[in-house]
Design a protein around this nucleic acid. Structure first.
Lengths: 125, 125
DNA sequence: TATAGTGTAATAGAAAGCTAATACACTATT
DNA sequence: AATAGTGTATTAGCTTTCTATTACACTATA
């Protein structure tokens, strides 16, 4: 797994778990891989995994059962809210950055459309 | 100035300088405040300012004249390209994150519009 | 030429993040 | 009861970032 060296790894792992839940690769109540296994898979130290999972546990997204493993919460409401929260966060960040550059909301939409068109053109090559 | 503790301060200062240039608060050829002054203004150590400016110098955005000060480049082409680069970077990041969540380009546009509408509603309170 | 205002460099130390290694505690299964 | 598979905790050491401090070098000007 590729990590951005400007942001702590444990933080990026949290985001990765969010993503896996949102994509449905991890479902409500499902058991996560063992932390030692995750450490190998993500080529990261066990303590780093621990730190990410401990924050997810604090949020109630992950439930830890000592001796058994880590599980995605069964609180489906919480999981539904998660996707909205994560997606909104991204748009919020973008919006604030654009606003700081005095770019209006209407311009933001136009910039996004233009960017999408550019990507499409490139794909067609 | 508020810094995000998940990202190095020197990196955030770089972004800040980009912003000031894009907004026209710093114009081509203009002298920047002295580094000791910047350090006070941003409540940060001189060395941290140095690191940010040294990277900006490498990019050619800032020209350093020993004993005189730091100046925004007079290369207006470079400065024009800067805004496009910075703005595009933001949309690129957003696009990739949304794609990772299997959100389609059309949905991205809709999400952005919805977010903008939400912000407008809040402002009207 | 002295002085104030600039940038530059180097050193030391603190804090955060990450790794490595080890020991321990709980659970399930044999 | 023993063992294998879990999570938990602790310690030591490395690296990056940031701070603090000091010394130095160049430029402009009184």
């Amino acid at each position: 797994m590729k990590f951005n060296d400007k942001v702590p790894i444990y933080y990026q792992i949290k985001q990765y778990v969010y993503q896996e839940i949102i994509l449905g690769h991890l479902k409500a109540g499902q058991k996560l891989p063992a932390i030692r296994q995750l450490a190998v898979t993500l080529t990261v130290n066990v303590n780093t995994i621990q730190r990410a999972l401990s924050e997810l546990t604090t949020e109630g997204i992950i439930i830890t059962q000592r001796g058994k493993g880590n599980f995605v919460t069964s609180d489906t409401q919480l999981l539904q809210a998660l996707k909205k929260r994560i997606v909104t966060e991204q748009f919020s960040e973008l919006y604030d950055k654009m606003l700081a550059l005095k770019i209006t909301p209407a311009e933001m939409v136009q910039y996004l459309k233009n960017y999408i068109d550019q990507r499409k053109e490139v794909q067609h090559d």
